[in-house]
Design a protein around this nucleic acid. Structure first.
Lengths: 324, 324
DNA sequence: TTGAAAGCGTTACCAT
DNA sequence: ATGGTAACGCTTTCAA
């Protein structure tokens, strides 16, 4: 692999000059520039990013920490981040934390040691102090680490309210809720939205809530439990789509017709929700936009450009399909 | 961020000594070692990976180039690769190529400039020459770039034969095929498997084959076309699960009952195939294992350990569910 | 307009 | 057993 020295040698100039044309910085004579460019082409020279990084203390790299890329929500997010990052000249390091704080910390170390320019993270265990101490721009996505930290989330509470009210408007008399993972802020918010709507109802009590972990398996068990407790439930709001899909499966197994006997609504708007039969009614958040905007914010932060806002709460939208 | 110099200063030794204890290389006295370790702890020192990379000409990083992480097959693959890589001390750089050769080449440049130790790639456009010239260990996954290059694929042909025969055994009289993307080797192999089984049949001709692009949209159109041409088709073998799902949707829209009137089988065994109703019968390939094994191979290559085999063809398995 | 040289944080060779 | 130092490939300051 040719180095800057080779280019300098071939062009008959010093490495400093080559560096100048490379970075378009400082004075370079017209003919010198052309010579250098010729040499670069001839050697197919590409600057060594590692050496650059060492000097600059930046590696043109963004760390992306998500719980699990297998969760379709994060898959789409990752794709958005990668697209935007590439366009801005950054490269993505992918980190799956499984929501495990030790993995998160260890990734944080690795990223810092690699001079990443910035980090996009979705975590509920990380504290503001840990982030501050990194001394690297960080934007938090889908989950709020602390007020003050650049954050981008969706209207979780509002979405939950819309979802629950919608079930009511469809004639549901008793509505259960499958909660998201405990300790995750967005699960909390969605839960609260649900509660806000139904807590005044005469039939309502805590037994209409079951716990899931934002995954299918937990949802299947939770739904069984819920329907055993309350066979007369006619509506379920699940805190995300995957769990809603699990609920549909259970209903199916139990011989309950969706949506005739039981209406089910989810949250997220993952692509999967349109491929099922019945297609899932859900509160869609703009996932791709979430990732894109997060990256834009981070790029601004990394390049010390001013940030319009440090906190975005993106709107959600009810999409009615066949599960209600 | 503390550097090796700070550690050396605090411990009252030279940087060379610190480096020795860091890497457990060369002689270092017991008490000196302890002093250094104490200093390291005290400063919470972590070696600068960029500086290391510059010297070693390796960055402990693996590039993963896939067409699109949004394709569930590659999502699972990516997860497997990341898991295994992390365990082996490597970090993943994620690259979505969209099957676009320019993006692939540009990523290849970026990866080389970043001193990645190795690359895992799924591509049909890359040539053996381009890979060779990189001078970096590469393993090709899911698609064969050239004999000779380390490769890991699944039994595509065999799987297709099993799938088609299975439809026959279920009583299908006329079986159509939704092809995968033209130019992609595994699509070719699956197609050939299908052809092998049905080409002797009296009813068979080319009109029973329609073209898809391994995605849902193309499959929906292809299926419509196929069923218009041959309303009496009673079996469809789709070259992957996503397309099979698309086919099910179309059948549904057209009022054909699956599996009663039309049996559909896919290929891949993505997680999604179990969440649908009806659950999809499919030829499952061991996706996670594919990714894991590819990474293991790559690690061996990168660390100059001998490779047992340079070519793996992993077995596939028919899983019968409700779409047949 | 150009070049020499220091420095980024490591590692490894050669002395001692 | 330990230290000095060149080298990895680049950028930037300072001088010329």
């Amino acid at each position: 692999m040719a180095s800057i020295k080779d280019v300098a040698g071939l062009a008959g100039v010093s490495v400093a000059t080559v560096s100048r044309v490379l970075n378009d910085k400082g004075y370079v004579g017209q003919s010198t520039r052309e010579n250098v460019e010729k040499a670069i082409k001839q050697l197919n020279y590409k600057p060594n990013e590692v050496a650059r990084s060492l000097f600059k203390k930046k590696s043109n790299t963004i760390g992306l920490i998500v719980p699990d890329i297998m969760n379709p929500f994060f898959t789409e997010l990752a794709r958005a981040v990668e697209d935007k990052a590439t366009k801005s000249g950054y490269t993505i390091i992918l980190c799956n934390s499984d929501g495990n704080i030790d993995k998160e910390k260890s990734y944080l170390d690795v990223l810092r040691q690699n001079y990443v320019n910035g980090i996009i993270v979705s975590s509920n265990t990380l504290t503001a102090a840990q982030v501050k101490e990194l001394n690297i721009p960080v934007v938090s996505i889908d989950r709020e680490i602390s007020k003050g930290l650049p954050t981008i989330v969706a209207e979780n509470n509002k979405g939950a309210i819309i979802a629950t009210r919608f079930l009511q408007s469809k004639g549901c008399k008793k509505i259960g809720h499958i909660r998201g993972t405990h300790g995750v802020a967005n699960a909390e918010e969605r839960f609260n939205g649900y509660k806000e709507v139904v807590s005044g109802e005469p039939w309502y009590d805590d037994s209409f809530i079951v716990n899931g972990n934002f995954d299918m398996q937990s949802s299947i068990e939770a739904t069984k439990e819920l329907l055993t407790r309350h066979p007369d439930i006619d509506g379920i709001f699940a805190a995300n789509d995957i769990m809603a899909i699990g609920a549909i499966k259970v209903a199916y197994q139990l011989g309950m017709k969706v949506p005739e006997e039981l209406k089910i609504i989810g949250f997220d708007g993952i692509t999967l929700s349109t491929v099922l039969t019945p297609e899932l009614t859900t509160i869609v958040q703009p996932i791709y936009e979430l990732g894109e905007k997060a990256t834009t914010m981070l790029v601004h932060l990394m390049e010390q450009q001013p940030l319009e806002k440090t906190y975005y709460k993106l709107d959600v939208e009810l999409i009615e399909r066949n599960s209600t």
